[in-house]
């Protein structure tokens, strides 16, 4: 089972409350890479049914124009999550986000329910991917096993609000309280070859702070960031847009590796730098980012 969407570009994943149909009707105009249709915390307890109803019909009726549709289900400690999954899979969602993931078993439990729903609603096996939100110290510590838990799992995401409470700290805006978790999670994700996403920034009056945080997590290697407002999208995308010299270099690396491989050469130099096959995926990613950002005009 291999889902071609597993490694798609996910620089921005925008939270949208399924309780508000006006929000979920056309978020694609803001051009996020993914949207996260939330059935969990944003939805009032007594509105869970209504939110599922809106979600189902939105997924069925609306052409999201290529934007990935991730559904955040309610926690496994509730009696809501199974129906959330049925509803999301029946509607045609691309992925399920598991909140408060603490162990690999959590992922496997959800995977089983997804597979059942795929059969029930006659969707191809493996068509629905999974991402896991790590919201506790235990979840973060178990990042490696969670990343390895399922072929469907495309990535893990830090959920800073709950995590900071569990860590008994407050969110400072400097990121100091997330240092360990971020570093640990990105290493685990890379080791398991899955993606890693950073937590939301909720202070919309401090867009400069947001920009700095995105620069930090970009430098750390995160694949993208969860966002709460469309204003944040262009900032993230700009930071994730490769610079012209990076694009030129990546282009050369890809072309040279393809050429040298045919000639049986493994190691060579590009612009004075030693290059081997290990650079290939990174260069491909740079070109993919450049294409998504609309700055690539080449032929790769």
């Amino acid at each position: 089972m291999s889902n071609p969407n597993k490694y798609r570009l996910r620089r921005t994943m925008m939270f949208l409350n399924c309780q508000k149909p006006g929000l979920i009707k056309d978020p694609y105009v803001y051009k996020p890479d993914s949207i996260m249709l939330d059935l969990e915390d944003a939805v009032a307890e007594r509105e869970k049914d209504a939110a599922r109803y809106s979600l189902y019909h939105a997924l069925k009726e609306i052409d999201y124009r290529g934007v990935e549709r991730v559904v955040r289900i309610n926690g496994l400690d509730t009696d809501l999550w199974r129906e959330d999954i049925r509803c999301a899979v029946a509607g045609g969602c691309d992925s399920i986000r598991i909140p408060k993931t603490e162990t690999a078993d959590d992922v496997r439990t959800v995977e089983y329910a997804i597979a059942e729903a795929e059969r029930e609603f006659r969707r191809p096996e493996g068509s629905v991917l999974i991402m896991a939100a790590l919201e506790s110290a235990r979840g973060v510590i178990n990042a490696m096993s969670i990343c390895d838990s399922s072929e469907r799992l495309f990535g893990i995401a830090l959920s800073g609000g709950d995590y900071s409470k569990d860590l008994q700290v407050s969110i400072s805006g400097t990121g100091v309280e997330f240092m360990g978790a971020r570093q640990h999670m990105i290493i685990a994700a890379r080791a398991a070859k899955v993606q890693c996403f950073d937590t939301v920034w909720t202070n919309l009056d401090d867009m400069e702070g947001f920009r700095k945080e995105v620069e930090t997590i970009h430098a750390m290697g995160f694949d993208g960031k969860s966002i709460v407002n469309p204003r944040q999208i262009p900032i993230v995308h700009k930071i994730y847009t490769p610079k012209e010299k990076e694009i030129i270099f990546a282009e050369k690396v890809i072309k040279e590796i393809d050429e040298k491989k045919a000639q049986g050469i493994g190691v060579f130099t590009v612009d004075g730098k030693m290059i081997d096959i290990a650079f290939y995926d990174g260069a491909k990613r740079t070109i993919a980012l450049a294409k998504a950002s609309g700055v690539y005009k080449g032929d790769l």
């Binding site: 105009v29 803001y30 919309l204 407002n229 469309p230 204003r231």
Partner: peptide
């Protein structure tokens, strides 16, 4: 305005 649709 902070309405993202208008800003867009």
């Amino acid at each position: 305005t902070t309405d993202q649709r208008k800003l867009l």
